[in-house]
């Protein structure tokens, strides 16, 4: 019964002649709807594209978050190796463990950042100190305090390095060092 009422009203509207004002109004309303529809489509398209990008970023962030804490363990292992051991067999075992760790990181897509002997590059190096050097150009990395790592084309963490400076300049940490 209700349905028939609606039908009747539709027929009613269809029969009536539309005046100019109403045509204009309807056309404008249609325009607005079309604009809105287009905008919605555009928004959706942008969202879809961005969601692909964000998924990619999230995946990378996940790998990054998993790898980063492991690097500190590797640092410690390297420090231990640097100290050495009087037990040659034990030392050899630890050295092999270290190689295994490095291989595992490489398999996961991580690569060490080259530092010593390279010109200092703040994109991948973090300067922790400067040191006078007679043998290399100022601005060259002379020592690596902590190895830097790259994950694919992104920096996982910068290498912490000591950078050569011209020999005459004052050395060591400044008394007033804001970079604590």
């Amino acid at each position: 019964m209700d349905a028939s009422k609606i039908d009747a009203s539709k027929i009613d509207a269809g029969d009536r002649a539309l005046d100019g004002d109403e045509v204009r109004r309807l056309r404008q309303a249609l325009d607005e709807q079309e604009q809105r529809g287009l905008r919605l489509l555009a928004d959706f398209d942008n969202l879809r594209r961005r969601s692909v990008r964000e998924q990619d970023a999230a995946r990378r962030e996940g790998r990054r978050a998993a790898l980063l804490p492991l690097l500190a363990v590797l640092d410690t292992l390297e420090r231990a190796l640097a100290v050495g051991s009087i037990d040659a067999d034990f030392y050899e075992g630890m050295a092999a463990t270290h190689r295994q760790f490095m291989t595992a990181l490489r398999e996961a897509g991580a690569e060490p950042v080259a530092s010593v002997g390279q010109p200092f590059d703040p994109n991948v190096h973090e300067a922790v100190a400067t040191a006078p050097s007679e043998s290399v150009q100022p601005g060259t990395v002379v020592r690596e305090l902590r190895r830097g790592w790259r994950l694919d084309d992104e920096l996982l963490r910068p290498a912490q390095v000591v950078v050569a400076e011209a020999p005459k300049a004052p050395v060591a940490a400044k008394a007033n060092d804001p970079w604590r």
């Binding site: 703040p122 190096h125 300067a127 922790v128 910068p158 400076e165 400044k174």
Partner: peptide
């Protein structure tokens, strides 16, 4: 913000990383 000797301007984390060499 950092100004390198090559005339480059660095901003943000990268500027911070080189601060010690270029205070």
């Amino acid at each position: 913000v950092a100004f390198t000797k090559d005339g480059e301007i660095l901003v943000g984390q990268i500027a911070k990383r080189q601060a010690v060499t270029n205070p």
